[in-house]
């Protein structure tokens, strides 16, 4: 352990957690609206390749992330049309979406090479970043890290304190009652699904533009599935989502550092540790109740 710089480690934790946090906050909104979209992984990896190409073609980080959001949302729109209007099963459609997204991303990214570099601006927050240790851990990151935290806070506020958030929760809790009161269940859900797709896309692009940063097949490596699990772990509450994402990111960063120090534990065990930690936490915290209509198909006629 002596070789690990704790300050760098904690800063790395935040970078490792950000893509998961972004994808998870999107999925949280989707699930609060009563839709279970298991295609997060597919939307993330589509966002990763779209963001990578858009960013490098324009040499602009903003264009890259915008492209990622659009790419993720487009894939999500397919899911929305299938489940909401053609009434397909959400679980099966979501799984298919992941397979589709992974394949699509591999095809689009095949042979794409570039010499340009995309720099995501870092933002050192004045004064706060000068605090020893803490400043380095929390306040010297790129803009996306702050945006992800702000987004979680905004979603939390939206769900808790606004009319729109109340209607969205109502649709997820009991879609038949919401319909009877005259709310457009499909439209609200479609909006939530697009938002979830855009967030997952941005999360994917964070991996391909900031964290790695390059394009390789299967770059998201299951981050979408972890994001799904963390939504449940967080009991569908935005505040707890941050804790869940940072826990997973923390274990990921820690095991990478442990591997680097050449610890006498086989690498495979270290690599699986973040996933095991997620499973353990899920089991320990299971039992909380999700939105009442989660995963159910809505027929306006019944």
């Amino acid at each position: 352990m002596g070789d690990i710089n704790i300050i760098f480690l904690l800063a790395a934790v935040i970078v490792a957690s950000t893509p998961i946090l972004l994808a998870a906050i999107g999925e949280l909104v989707v699930e609060r609206a009563g839709v279970l979209n298991l295609g997060v992984e597919g939307m993330m990896i589509t966002g990763a390749v779209c963001g990578y190409i858009a960013g490098h073609e324009t040499s602009s980080a903003v264009a890259g992330f915008a492209g990622a959001a659009v790419g993720g949302a487009c894939v999500a729109a397919i899911f929305g049309v299938l489940t909401l209007f053609l009434l397909t099963n959400q679980v099966a459609t979501g799984l298919a979406l992941t397979l589709f997204g992974v394949g699509l991303a591999a095809m689009v990214g095949q042979g794409y090479s570039t010499d340009t570099q995309v720099l995501v601006p870092k933002l050192a927050i004045p004064l706060l970043s000068d605090i020893p240790a803490i400043g380095h851990i929390f306040f010297k990151h790129d803009l996306l890290v702050y945006i992800s935290i702000a987004l979680v806070a905004a979603v939390g506020y939206f769900l808790r304190h606004t009319r729109g958030g109340l209607v969205l929760r109502a649709v997820g809790e009991n879609h038949e009652a919401a319909h009877a009161l005259g709310y457009n269940v499909r439209l609200i859900r479609f909006g939530a699904i697009l938002f979830g797709g855009a967030c997952a896309g941005i999360g994917g692009a964070y991996i391909s533009l900031v964290r790695v940063p390059q394009w390789t097949d299967g770059i998201t490596a299951g981050a979408g599935w972890i994001a799904l699990a963390i939504v449940v772990f967080a009991s569908w509450k935005p505040g707890r989502l941050v804790a869940g994402a940072y826990l997973f990111g923390g274990v990921t960063a820690l095991q990478l550092n442990l591997q680097a120090t050449g610890l006498a534990i086989p690498v495979e065990y270290l690599s699986m540790s973040p996933y095991i930690a997620t499973i353990v936490v899920l089991v320990v915290l299971s039992g909380s109740r999700g939105p009442g209509s989660l995963g159910k198909t809505f027929h306006a006629s019944r």
Binding site: L166, V167, R169, A170, N174, A177, A178, A180, P291, G292
Partner: peptide, 16 residues
Amino acid sequence: FSLFDALNVAENIALG
């Protein structure tokens, strides 16, 4: 009843 079990009374009323 067109009510939402997980929401409180005031929220249910606001929705209508």
